[in-house]
Amino acid sequence: MTAVTPVTLRRQVELTIDGQAVTAGEGATILEACRAAGIEVPTLCYLETLAPVNVCRVCVVEVEGSRALVPSCSRPVAAAMVVHTASERVRTSRRMVLELLASSVDLSTAGRDVHRWIEEHGARPERHGPAAPPAERDHAHAGHHEPPEAGLAATVAQAVKRDNDQYVRDYAKCILCYKCVEACGEEAQNTFAIAVAGRGFDARISTELDVALPDSACVYCGNCIGVCPTGALMFVSEHDLRARGEWDESRQEVTRTVCPYCGVGCNLDLHVQDNRIVKVTSPLDHDVTSGNLCVKGRFGFEFAQGGS
C-alpha cells in the first residue's frame, strides 16, 4: 500500500485451468492464477505474507506432463500449462491429506473452511481406527519409535503447554504447517525461538531441547499466533474466554487503529467483545507490518481497560 510503488511490468502467460483459458503474470503461482479465475483451491500452510513451504500438500493440482501432483502454492505458472484442480487424482490426494490430518490432529478450532473441505471431499478419519491416548512427544529420538498399539491410530494428542502469561501452546492441534516457525524466523521476527525438531510422525515444534518459552529466545511478539491456522497457538485471552464458553466472534467487532507505542506506525486490528479488547492482530495487506507486531503492540493494551 505504499503510495508510490515502482511498477514492475510482468509478461503475461496463458494457461488452461480446468478447461478454462486463463492469463496470469509471469512468476505468479498456479494458486494465484486459480484464485484469480475464481477456482477454490484449499490451503493450510500457505499465507500471502510468507514464502510458500508447500508442506501440507492440500493444494496439490494435476499438471499435465508432470509425474506427481504439484503444489499450486509454490509452482509458478508456465505457458501452455494444463492444470486440473478437481481430477480424481487430485481429489483423492486432497481427501487423504485432510483425512490424515483429521485422524491425527485436533482440528476443533481450525477455521470453518477446513471442516467444509473435510466434508466436501468425503474424508473419513475414523477409518484409521480409534485415537491412541495422549502421549509425551517432546523427547522422541529420531529413528526410533514405539510400535503402534494394535488397533489404535497414533495422534499428536498431548498436554497443553502454558508456561507464561500470554501464550498457550496446544500442540495437539498442530498440523505442522511451519507458519509459526517462519514467522518467528526468517520471514518476519528473526528470533528463531522455535523450529521443527525431530522427524517423521514425531516431528514437532520445539524450542531447543523443549525448554519452556521463558527460557527460550521468545520475545512474545505473537507473530506465531497471528499465523497459526488451527488455534494450536492462542493468546491466553482467547484461550481462557473459550474455556469459559464466552468467546463469541459474532459479538466481536474489529477496528483498525495505530499502535500507541513507538513511532513506526503499526496498524492494529483490535478485536473487541463487550467493550474489551480480546485479541490484537495486524492486517496482512499493510506494508508497514505485513501482519506482524511486537510484544507491546500485541499485548500492551491493558492500560486502556483498567490494567494499570
Binding site: 508447500n54 508442506v55 501440507c56 500438500r57 492440500v58 491429506v97 490424515l100 490430518l101 529420531a142 529413528g143 526410533h144 519409535h145 498440523i175 505442522l176 521443527v196 525431530g198 522427524r199 517423521g200 510422525f201 514425531d202 516431528a203
Partner: peptide
Amino acid sequence: DESCGQCV
C-alpha cells in the same frame, strides 16, 4: 522412522 516429517 526415516520420514523427515515435512509433508503430511
